Simulated assay, not measured.
Amino acid sequence: MGDSSTDTEKEEEEEDEKSKTDVGHAIVPTINIQDERLVDLSTTPAFLCLNELHTMGKLPGTRMAELKAKYMLLHDTVMSTQESEVQLLQNAKRFTEQIQQQQQHLQQADGFPEALSTEVSKMREQLLKYQNEYNAAKEREFHNQYRLSSLMEEKNLILKEFEKIPKPGEMEKKMKLLRESTEELRKEIMQKKLEIKNLREDLTSKQKQLVKEQKELEEVLEHQVVLKDEVVQHQNIPMQIAKEIEKMTRKKVELERKKLVLEYEVKELNNSLKKVESKVSVLVEEKEDVVKEVEGKRALLEVREREYHHLVRLLELTQENEASSLTERLVVLTRVLLSAV
């Protein structure tokens, strides 16, 4: 009996260890998302459909290239979202591993004391196992829903682009427009040919003119050589000019000195002139006084002269009268003497 009980206890411990290992592996979520970076875009249904439409003539090459570029952009966005999802799933895996470790610690703690029954632990292990299976199924469902939504979006995009493909009537209209445009292009080509012919003629005339200008340029270069020789000959002139400039600067300095002396003398002359002007003003005042006195004396002199002239006339008259009286007296005396004789 003791041996059988020990054997059963060993079997139960082995089953507990197996269940623990199974629980540890079951908790970790699985990542079953297809890596879009490894997908060859040329083998995708969208690219194959576009190539078929192009080979059938229903889709032009430019439109096909545009749609492929759009699909590549969408594929890049899918890759970026997938990388973010993978990162999130890795974080979830890391967190679940941490939870597993904590659960193992709890199970080890629950293993003490040994008297507790193992049925609760078995039920717990089964619950965790079913929970992990449920989480894995939920994750697969989410992945399938994501793939389904991406495929539906891809289908809708392809249908929209297919609807944009022109119909046969529209193709005929476009062919007519293309024919008209080709006719216009032919006319433009003929016009361009005429323009090219005219340009060639202009080019020949320009080449002739260029030859003429080259000859003129050679003459100018020869003249330039002559001018260079003259410049070499006239290089000594700046030295002479510099010497003359030095002389002029010296003269300028001397003149400035003389100017300062003259300015000083002018200041002194101005001062003396002011003094002379003051004296002149005094003399003018004295002159005015003298002139007034002279005018008064002149008036007096005129009066005196008038009186003098009047007296002179009176004197002359008296002298004439006296002379006439003397002559009369002499005549009388002569007569008397003659009569006496």
Rank of each mutant, 00 (worst) to 15 (best):
Q214I: 08
E11R: 15
E320Y: 03
A115D: 14
Q82N: 10
E114I: 06
K93I: 11
E141A: 13
K275I: 14
Q126E: 14
V86C: 10
E15R: 14
Q233I: 06
R37T: 11
S19C: 08
L314M: 05
E183Q: 11
F47H: 07
K206Q: 09
S181M: 09
I189V: 00
E277A: 01
K167I: 01
V266P: 03
E256A: 07
I245K: 15
L326V: 07
E66C: 00
P29D: 01
K247N: 11
V23A: 13
S4T: 10
K267Q: 15
K192L: 06
V261N: 15
F47D: 03
V312Q: 11
V39E: 06
V231I: 14
H309V: 10
V120E: 06
K243Q: 14
V294N: 12
L301T: 07
F95H: 11
V78S: 12
R140A: 15
V120R: 13
K164D: 13
T182W: 05
R63A: 08
M175G: 09
T81V: 05
K129R: 13
R147Y: 01
F47E: 05
H75C: 00
T30Y: 06
E328G: 00
Q98S: 14
R313N: 13
E244R: 10
N144M: 10
M79D: 04
Q191S: 08
K174E: 14
K197R: 09
E163C: 06
K193G: 05
I99Y: 09
E230C: 04
S181R: 14
A69F: 02
V282M: 04
L301D: 05
K212C: 00
H223W: 04
H25Y: 12
A115F: 07
K173E: 12
Q209I: 02
L317Q: 15
R140H: 13
E213D: 11
E154N: 07
E97Y: 07
K164Y: 00
E302I: 09
E246Q: 10
L199R: 03
K292F: 12
E288G: 06
D35P: 02
I31C: 11
V284P: 00
I196H: 01
V231K: 13
L59I: 03
F95M: 07
V336L: 12
P45M: 00
E97L: 10
D22E: 15
R94L: 12
E285S: 14
C49L: 08
Q87C: 06
L326F: 08
L315F: 07
A137T: 10
T30A: 14
